[in-house]
Amino acid sequence: MDNYSSKLPGSGSLPSFVLSLLRQRGAGEDSALGAATLAGKATIFFGEPISGRMIRAVVRDLRRTGQPICSNNFGFFWPSNLHDVLATAELQFRGPARDELLTARQLRDAGRRLFGRQESFL
């Protein structure tokens, strides 16, 4: 079962279960399910403890395989339109990535001011 846990009993896999639950719940932000809620449902279904961290890893991997799972402050949901997907990409990933790049740039510049422009392994 990849890196989510050991083989889970029951039919299907954790990624399939999560994807199915989100799609069956309906599309749109109002249908969002939090990682803890999904973990609780998966724990009951598979009969083994599933953590919110495992659910977040599953969602990440599903997104990387092309599943358009969206998220907001309330949890994960299936999109009802392109705006849902683009908003998730911007608010959850692109915005924070830009912020982290700015922090990295400021840290690098501070180091160069403090120590000069020395050779570095980076």
Rank of each mutant, 00 (worst) to 15 (best):
D2G: 05
D2A: 13
D2I: 04
D2Y: 06
Y4P: 00
Y4K: 00
S5C: 15
S6V: 14
S6F: 09
S6A: 11
K7I: 14
L8W: 02
G12S: 12
G12I: 05
S13L: 04
S16V: 06
S16F: 06
S16W: 03
F17L: 09
L19H: 14
S20P: 07
L21I: 12
L22D: 15
L22Y: 06
L22S: 08
L22C: 08
R23Y: 05
Q24P: 03
R25G: 10
G26P: 09
G26E: 07
G26L: 09
G28N: 06
E29H: 05
S31N: 15
S31E: 15
S31A: 15
L33H: 05
L33P: 01
L33N: 00
G34V: 03
G34P: 01
G34C: 00
G34F: 06
L38P: 01
A39E: 04
A39P: 05
A39C: 14
K41F: 13
K41A: 09
A42F: 02
A42V: 08
T43R: 04
T43E: 06
I44A: 12
F45L: 13
F45R: 02
F45S: 04
F46Y: 01
G47R: 08
G47Q: 13
G47C: 10
G47K: 11
G47E: 07
P49M: 09
I50Q: 01
I50S: 00
G52H: 03
G52P: 05
R53A: 12
M54E: 04
I55Q: 03
R56W: 00
A57W: 04
V58K: 00
V58T: 05
V59R: 00
R60M: 02
D61C: 11
D61L: 02
L62K: 03
L62T: 04
L62F: 13
R64N: 10
R64L: 12
R64E: 05
R64I: 02
T65C: 02
G66Q: 00
G66A: 04
G66C: 03
P68G: 03
C70V: 12
S71K: 06
N73D: 06
F74C: 08
G75A: 13
G75K: 03
F76Y: 15
F76L: 10
P79V: 15
S80F: 01
S80C: 15
S80D: 10
L82D: 08
L82G: 02
H83R: 05
H83M: 15
H83T: 15
H83G: 08
D84E: 15
A87R: 14
A87V: 07
A87L: 08
T88E: 01
T88D: 03
A89Q: 05
A89G: 01
Q92F: 06
Q92D: 15
Q92E: 10
F93S: 13
R94M: 14
R94H: 12
G95F: 07
G95V: 13
G95L: 14
G95K: 12
P96G: 07
A97D: 10
R98I: 08
D99W: 07
L101G: 02
T103N: 11
A104N: 01
A104P: 02
A104S: 10
Q106M: 13
Q106V: 12
D109Y: 14
A110Q: 11
G111E: 10
R113S: 10
R113D: 12
L114K: 14
G116H: 11
Q118W: 09
E119Y: 11
E119C: 13
S120A: 09
S120V: 10
F121K: 07
F121T: 09
F121D: 09
F121N: 12
L122T: 11
